[in-house]
Design a protein around this nucleic acid. Structure first.
Length: 201
DNA sequence: AACATGATAAACT
DNA sequence: GTTTATCATGTTC
């Protein structure tokens, strides 16, 4: 396997990095069981200057602490009391940028993913949406602040690269509270892929 | 009190 | 079939 190098996570342009994550393979190894999928949808959160970011204005709390670490760690937090959302911490130390993974195309461990989701057959919403994919891969807050070069959760380059005309940028989802920042086109997804969380074209 | 969601049910076409 | 409403649930500030 070819795990992504730390240098990849530490580039400063978080929007560009979010776009580059499309086509990468996100894997978890939990209780000896491998599950994985290809990333088909991401959102960039630009730390201090982005109202939609948990670290807006340089906010530093117990929850956001990990976002200030050097890129290459996981950031998993609980949303609406129910869903674990998985982010990649990016940029050099002290810069709290992150990328939310919103959609995956299932690859390894399909049976286990179905079981975790209480589903009996594959349909797109198995891993379309940040809460859904986290549940399918067994991601919860146990996996917060993990090294993405480790052996519990990691990201591999499997040589998939989408052409520029297959990638669509649009406004982020569920961040209306962020005012004008909600309109920024920092959501990236693969055109026509059925594991993208929201509107299909 | 607010929150980076998902499942379901009910009311439409 | 599709859109719209409602709720579950718990941590953070």
């Amino acid at each position: 396997m070819a795990k992504l190098p730390y240098a990849f996570y530490q580039q400063l342009e978080v929007t560009q990095l979010a776009e580059c994550l499309l086509g990468k393979k996100l894997c978890t190894l939990i209780d000896g069981k491998l599950t994985s999928g290809i990333v088909v949808e991401t959102e960039a959160y630009r730390g201090p200057e982005d109202k939609a970011s948990h670290a807006f204005g340089g906010r530093f709390t117990e929850r956001t602490r990990v976002m200030y670490e050097p890129g290459g760690l996981s950031y998993v937090y609980l949303c609406y009391g129910i869903h674990s959302l998985f982010n990649v911490v990016t940029a050099p130390a002290g810069m709290p940028h992150a990328v939310l993974v919103r959609g995956l195309e299932p690859l390894d461990g399909l049976d286990l993913m179905l079981k975790r989701r209480n589903m009996s057959f594959l349909k797109p919403n198995l891993t379309a949406g940040p809460g859904a994919l986290s549940k399918a891969l067994g991601i919860d807050r146990q996996l917060n602040a993990k090294d993405l070069g480790g052996d519990e959760i990691w990201i591999e380059d499997v040589g998939i690269g989408y052409a520029a005309n297959e990638i669509v940028a649009g406004p982020r989802i569920g961040v209306d509270y962020a005012g004008e920042d909600a309109l920024l086109p920092w959501r990236y997804y693969v055109k026509g892929n059925s594991f993208v969380s929201k509107p299909h074209l």
